[in-house]
Design a protein around this nucleic acid. Sequence first.
DNA 1: GCTCTATTTATGCAAGCGTATAAATACTCG
DNA 2: CGAGTATTTATACGCTTGCATAAATAGAGC
Lengths: 218, 218
Amino acid sequence: MTTEIVTRKSFRREGEDKRREDLIAATLECVAERGLAGATVREIALRADVTAGLIRYYFPTKDELIGAAYRAVMNRMTVQASDALKSANDDPRARLYAFVTANLGQPIMDPHNLSLWAGFIALVHADPAMAAAHRDGYLGFRDELEMLIRDALLAVGAPAESRHTRRHAIAINAIIDGLWLEGCLAGDIFADGELAETGITAIEAVLGISLKAEGGAP
Amino acid sequence: MTTEIVTRKSFRREGEDKRREDLIAATLECVAERGLAGATVREIALRADVTAGLIRYYFPTKDELIGAAYRAVMNRMTVQASDALKSANDDPRARLYAFVTANLGQPIMDPHNLSLWAGFIALVHADPAMAAAHRDGYLGFRDELEMLIRDALLAVGAPAESRHTRRHAIAINAIIDGLWLEGCLAGDIFADGELAETGITAIEAVLGISLKAEGGAP
DNA sequence: GCTCTATTTATGCAAGCGTATAAATACTCG
DNA sequence: CGAGTATTTATACGCTTGCATAAATAGAGC
């Protein structure tokens, strides 16, 4: 007769919120390092210092965890951009300026964020729930941008009816997205702040107003 | 003693080029329909009406097939945009106009293309070979764009030194990429041609020239 | 028409996947 | 302090995956 001594992993009970956050954070780590394919249940559990089974306790299916992680990334970027707004002064043009440069600089313009974003975007097409999550995030971002644009236009007495601001929001959103992409993918071939500067210049041209000086309408 | 009658799949020998193309096409079908995760060796083989083993005969590893497929997509989009240029007239502004609208309309601005692109982009971060392939494609596209921009500027006597055209190429590339993205992700919330028109307007503003009329510099 | 080989099929394996479920345990509440 | 429960671990099952390999065969070249 042999005496087996099995030692079971000791653990602490954490609050539901804490656990969910930890699991999401671990998921993002995995995706960032090895892509969506690297985000396996077991690897995520390992990072969160938890056994795989627990994941299912908080997320009925892996897809739900992935979806939650996606929303977390989007939310994080949104919050970071909004933070930049908070510390900006009251001039609407300065606020738009701050918003744009925040989105085109650290920590938002980061290869990890792109990896995460792209991995999720690739799923949007096949997964309706993900598609809805994405559309909400996109429209939210664009709406915030449109308000900033309208305020900036009004500040210099330029026309700011919604049929104008809508178009501008679409175009300027494209500029931000496009430059963000370029910067994430190949940040090293651009000088520091070059993309932010390029973005500001392009946006000024599109709006026909200056965002820096106290000048204004054409 | 039992007599077993096993029927083996009949097949034809195809040229190497044909087979590779077929396999790549099948891969793209899979990715388009169910994302990168749906592109399994077996599923690809099924679509190509071939058994799974054959894939390994032409592509030592699945990653190589995926990489080849990525290059094929990029190449296809590039060719389609170039085709639009060929059928444009000689006016440099018209050529830039055609290039932009081609990239912001069918068949380039298509959710399938985005799925493919995003899936691959998510891999770029982890796979250096893929990253190189991507950078080449990106720089090629931007160089072509920069030439078009320079010609358009020169046509109206605007300054077109390389330090200007480089910046413009970066910004306009961003506009195209950003709008392409928006269109692929949520094409249904935009009117027909709205994105192309928005893009043209924004680009005209950035360059300070018209791309339609025979007018010109500010 | 025979032979030879490049191409293709068929089969199998080991690893890793997501999920299910039962047993163990840390904490809560009386 | 003891019972009960929510949380966590542990284990295993059934699939799918990419890859390897042996057997078959279509078609080219003599």
